[in-house]
Design a protein around this nucleic acid. Structure first.
Length: 778
DNA sequence: CTCGGTGCGGTTTTT
DNA sequence: CCGCACCGAG
């Protein structure tokens, strides 16, 4: 025990050892406000170990929930490092993974077939498109994307169609489409991501024996990244933890309101305050930071202090001031990239490990020019984001064959592969199938089987193929099965004939390896493990648990390895790291960087409209979230932090002149070191003084043999001469008595009606007639 | 069915 | 500017 706790600082120790009962002997919940780099995961896992080792709970009485598979894996790994326990029986996983586990165990009570499949976001969208088509809905008026958003949103608020009342006709249609979508999913035996949550919530809510069972089992519920929970997840936790019952569990929530950056996908920081109000937790703040030097932390603290909606927290460190935060103003995105590359090259020459250097940006579009520069300079880099393994088209195709074998009602999978590779089943035949399916209320597969009257037809041979593969692999192991299917379904042959099919074939081979790993690592499959009857540890004060008589339908189910693997594939899309293992500079969005740390961090594109993003600028909530995003970015850096912005940037095919980000002004000057001296004279520098005719090539400082688009974007030389009668030029910094400072981004019309487009720092883009507006150069 | 043209839209992303 | 979704021709 002592070695478990002796490395903790006082606040961590306090958090880990918080009482589990209040003065009245009731369960006591806790809220840990864990700042960036304060040892959050450590506290969470040590808390679990502490509870177990002090005999307060058996491992089976613990439920720990995270948002990502990565976090769940890390937690399990750390736990097994701390204690000699078998983590298999523990419920540690993502919200979706745990819900899946719950629904697999109680599929019957949840109203699902035992073979239910999980739709990922792509699958869901294609299911919706199919639905709209079959209902002959005008998809101009009711776009599939929008319906998808509508449905997810409704579910994440816990709403079924019947719970919703339309405010207008449009909503009325959306609700009816939502209803139809539900019917389709049920008919096909599929559930989408939000459905996993909602359905398991409803299962617990409406089925008393099951609810009682889990409430009495899980005496300790621990939640990671609590600030990222949405309404439904909060309700799920509240229900599962038996809040407001006679036997509530202890909820241990760990989060950081300052790092809440997912409101756009439904996360609601307000859940933290709600939790305080409803659970009356003991609160501990972890403010000791073990990651960054003081200059970096001060910068972060100073920035985030501008947010009004905070629970309040300030990071501190014992590390020294360290280096100042470096700020660079570039003339264009091209020069920003070349400066970055020069700096990185110097760092590498000084012995810096590439993978300790991260380049962060607000949006993915910014990576292109940086990648180009790195590539030309021959610096290995890795971009995070993009397609992950199980999202690749060829993998999705192979999985669709497998899913169809497992669940013939899965029309999404049927549609995906019925004519891929092409076997002469065109839109006409599929429409015919859909008609039959609709009239007899059956799946496409059943409709196709119905057509077996025409034995020679392409459709019936497709059905025979699926049936044959199912029969032929009945006795095979999972990897053998998958091997057989990819060999026989025609995908390999198809890609062999394709010019660039080799990579895809390799990925298909990799799928077999993934299955091998799945079988080896997970045994039956961690997510898929059927509910094992709970062994009672009589030495622990655990209440009677499993009433097998009363809940006959909760009998564990044998799940096929294939079903387990398919669920795994949907729930864990896999890595998206291109060349893992290689020492490479890390490129990613700020969002993707959350939870990571690097010795050196570059935050690029700190410009109004980009960061903060223009879509967020107008609402205070949006702006505060952008600021938190900046806070996350800053706190990724251990030793050195670079910030950069540019005067001009190519975006959406045109050059934009952005003002420096307002966030730059919110940083403490004493922590900053300006790398561009001009910066100190004028807040944004002065384009005229910085103009250099060699922009775009010579100033890159190294040869760029293939820098075609590079020079295209960086040869943006704002006209310095005022070859017109008003004397203003694009890129010029100007002052307006009402709108303040801004930069000219364009002109239109001729004197005396010439109008200038000005991007004002505080008022956005305006068109001003030069003969009227009192515009002065600064 | 496949290829090539056009037109449009374009933050952030995990499950 | 770039990627896609959709449409019409072969």
């Amino acid at each position: 025990m002592s070695e478990l706790l002796h490395n903790l600082n006082p606040e961590q120790l306090q958090a880990v050892t918080l009482a589990t009962k209040d003065e009245n002997g009731n369960a006591q919940s806790a809220l840990i406000l864990a700042g960036a780099g304060s040892g959050k995961t450590r506290v969470l896992t040590t808390r679990i170990a502490y509870l177990i080792q002090t005999g307060q709970i058996s491992p089976i009485g613990i439920l720990a929930v995270t948002f990502t598979n990565k976090a769940a894996k890390e937690m399990l790994a750390r736990l097994s490092g701390m204690m000699p326990i078998n983590t298999r029986g523990m419920w540690v996983g993502t919200f979706h993974g745990l819900c899946n586990r719950l629904l697999r165990a109680h599929f019957n009570d949840a109203g699902l077939p035992s073979t239910f499949q999980i739709l990922d976001t792509q699958d869901q969208l294609s299911a919706i498109k199919r639905l709209l088509k079959s209902l002959k809905v005008d998809d101009e008026k009711y776009p599939a994307k929008q319906l998808q958003y509508f449905i997810s949103n409704a579910k994440e608020r816990g709403n079924r169609p019947k719970d919703m009342s339309p405010a207008d006709e449009f909503q009325g249609v959306m609700i009816r489409l939502y209803q139809a979508y539900e019917e389709q999913c049920l008919r096909e035996g599929v559930v989408d991501f939000s459905e996993l949550l909602l359905r398991s919530y409803e299962l617990l809510k409406h089925n008393e024996p099951i609810r009682e069972h889990y409430q009495r089992r899980f005496r300790h519920v621990l939640v990671d990244e609590f600030q990222d929970t949405n309404t439904l997840q909060y309700a799920w936790l509240k229900l599962l933890s038996g809040h407001s019952t006679s036997h509530p569990a202890c909820v241990f929530a760990v989060g950081d309101d300052d790092q809440s950056i997912y409101a756009f996908r439904g996360a609601d920081v307000a859940n933290m305050r709600l939790f305080e109000k409803q659970f009356h937790p003991l609160t501990v703040k972890l403010e000791q930071n073990y990651r960054s030097h003081a200059n970096i932390l001060d910068t972060a603290n100073h920035l985030i202090a501008h947010n009004k909606e905070r629970l309040g927290k300030n990071l501190r460190t014992d590390a020294g001031h360290g280096e100042p935060v470096r700020l660079y103003e570039a003339a264009s995105d091209g020069t920003e990239a070349s400066w970055l590359i020069d700096e990185i090259r110097n760092l590498i020459n000084d012995g810096m490990t590439r993978s300790e250097v991260a380049i962060l940006y607000r949006s993915n579009a910014q990576s292109r020019i940086i990648e180009h520069g790195l590539f030309s300079a021959g610096i290995a880099y890795r971009v995070y984001g993009g397609l992950r393994f199980f999202e690749r088209a060829e993998i999705k195709h192979a999985l669709a064959y497998l899913r169809l074998m497992e669940n013939p009602n899965d029309d999404t999978s049927f549609s995906r592969v019925v004519n891929f590779p092409t076997r002469g089943i065109g839109a006409r035949s599929i429409e015919a199938l859909q008609d039959i399916a609709r009239t007899q209320q059956s799946s496409l597969y059943a409709a196709a089987s119905f057509l077996e009257g025409k034995p020679g037809s392409s459709i019936s041979s497709f059905i025979r193929l699926i049936d044959h593969m199912r029969d032929a692999t009945r006795k095979n192991t999972l990897p053998e099965l998958i091997d057989y299917v990819i060999q026989h379904c025609g995908l390999i042959q198809h890609y062999l004939a394709e010019k660039e099919g080799q990579d895809r074939i390799e990925n298909l081979q990799e799928l077999i390896n993934a299955a091998t790993a799945f079988v080896a690592e997970e045994g039956l499959g961690q997510d898929a493990v059927a509910l094992t009857p709970i062994e009672l540890n009589t030495s622990l004060p655990v209440e009677p648990l499993f009433d097998t008589q009363g809940t006959a339908s909760t009998t564990p189910t044998e799940m096929s390895p294939l079903a387990g693997f398919l669920a795994h594939a949907s729930l864990e899309a896999g890595d998206n790291q291109a060349q893992a293992g290689q020492d490479a500079v890390q490129l990613m969005t700020v969002h993707a960087s959350k939870g990571l740390e690097f010795k050196v961090v570059f935050i690029t594109g700190l410009e109004e409209g980009l960061f903060p993003h223009e879509n967020s600028i107008n609402e205070p909530k949006g702006l505060e979230e952008e600021r938190r995003l900046m806070y996350v970015a800053i706190t990724r850096a251990r030793d050195r932090l670079y910030l950069s912005h540019t005067q001009s940037r190519m975006l959406h095919g045109q050059v934009r002149y952005n003002m420096p980000s307002r966030f730059l002004e919110e940083l403490p000057k004493e922590c900053l070191k300006l790398l561009t001296p001009k910066h100190s004279e004028s807040r944004w520098g002065n384009v005229a003084r910085q103009v250099n005719p060699s922009w775009g090539n010579a100033s890159l400082g190294h040869d760029l043999p293939t820098a075609k688009s590079f020079s295209k974007t960086s040869v943006i030389v704002p006209s310095t001469k005022s070859n017109n009668d008003h004397g203003f030029y694009v890129g010029q910094n100007v002052f307006h008595p009402k709108f303040g400072e801004g930069r000219i981004t364009g002109f239109e019309g001729n004197a005396p009606d010439t109008r200038a487009q000005v991007n004002f720092a505080r008022h956005g883009v305006k068109w001003l007639q030069l003969s009227i507006a009192k515009l002065t150069a600064i």
